[in-house]
């Protein structure tokens, strides 16, 4: 019956198209649909577990002291993470000051001037590769160029390391925001006799400002959670410090150190710190998601 010059002759019964759920093909499809659905459920589980566990462990420990006091000496209870919270903000401030101008203006070149050029291709390529480079490498880099030259661990060195983490994120997401600015807007500005600088600074950047702000905020949130680049740049500090050129405590490094020492009060502080860090990051991610979604429609 392999002669296909004769077409299929349909049988005249009305059953010919009945969907047979037990046929191997349909069973296979049902199985696969169920399996992948199960996978999706499994993937949500750790997120839910982490959020619930961190909240239940950390919430009882949230009080004013957490934000205003120094950590207690090993083994003693009480105290807070006040210096680490301030330290995280300072280090992020340094990283912001370094990475935002470079990232945003670099993105301006990519989207406004270099579009389609060979150089732009390689810059984008480097940005993508750099965003895949392990965060701890950024720490080593900052160690060799800042800590070794200045002879001391410092908040500034931590900021440099985080800037390396932030830079590719800021540049690529800003570029995506700039590309969304309609071409007519640029043409209109050029048509009125504006220079490239005037077009970008007065028209394109303001139009893309919400998406740039989102990009920078997301990059800050991501960097704020990083501990690896800070371990041997900002190091740690058990006391209050706002000096850029001395070691400084940060929330993420503090969580790490408190998680691996065997004292209950410190471990509790680690959970409380984790809750603070996680809440900020999740809130920023969720809010920016809604902002950008509204933007795109």
């Amino acid at each position: 019956m392999t002669d296909i010059s004769q077409p299929h002759t349909p049988d005249t019964t009305n059953d010919q198209f009945r969907k047979i759920w037990t046929s191997p093909r349909n069973l296979f499809g049902l199985f696969m649909t169920g399996l992948t659905g199960l996978f999706a459920a499994i993937a949500i589980l750790p997120l839910a577990a982490i959020v619930i566990n961190v909240a239940s462990q950390g919430l009882p420990l949230i009080n004013l002291d957490l934000f205003t006091k120094l950590p207690p000496p090993p083994g003693l209870s009480g105290g807070g993470l006040g210096n680490a919270i301030v330290g995280t903000l300072i280090v992020l401030g340094v990283a912001f000051v370094i990475s935002t101008p470079i990232g945003v203006l670099g993105a301006v070149w990519l989207s406004e001037f270099g579009r389609g050029s060979k150089i732009a291709y390689w810059v984008r390529f480097s940005a993508n590769v750099l965003s895949g480079v392990p965060a701890i490498i950024a720490g080593l880099f900052s160690y060799t160029i800042v800590v070794m030259t200045m002879g001391t661990f410092s908040a500034f060195a931590g900021g440099v390391a985080l800037a390396v983490v932030m830079l590719p994120i800021v540049m690529r997401t800003t570029e995506e925001g700039l590309v969304l600015v309609p071409e007519e807007v640029r043409l209109a500005a050029f048509g009125l006799g504006a220079t490239r600088f005037e077009t970008v600074s007065r028209v394109v950047l303001p139009a893309a400002l919400p998406s740039i702000a989102t990009a920078v905020t997301l990059a800050l949130a991501r960097a704020g959670g990083e501990a690896a680049p800070l371990l041997f740049t900002a190091l740690n500090n058990n006391f209050w410090s706002t000096d850029l050129f001395r070691p400084i405590a940060t929330l993420s490094v503090q969580i790490y150190f408190f998680a691996i020492i065997p004292f209950k009060p410190q471990q509790e502080l680690a959970w409380a710190g984790a809750l603070v860090l996680l809440s900020i990051i999740l809130i920023v991610s969720i809010v920016s998601r809604f902002l950008t979604r509204r933007k795109s429609y």
Partner: peptide
């Protein structure tokens, strides 16, 4: 669901480490 899975990527690894230990 897709967004929740993306959020998983946003959790700081030090928090995941802490959760992993305890």
């Amino acid at each position: 669901i897709a967004f929740a899975i993306e959020l998983l990527a946003a959790i700081p690894s030090v928090v995941i480490g802490l959760w992993g230990i305890f």
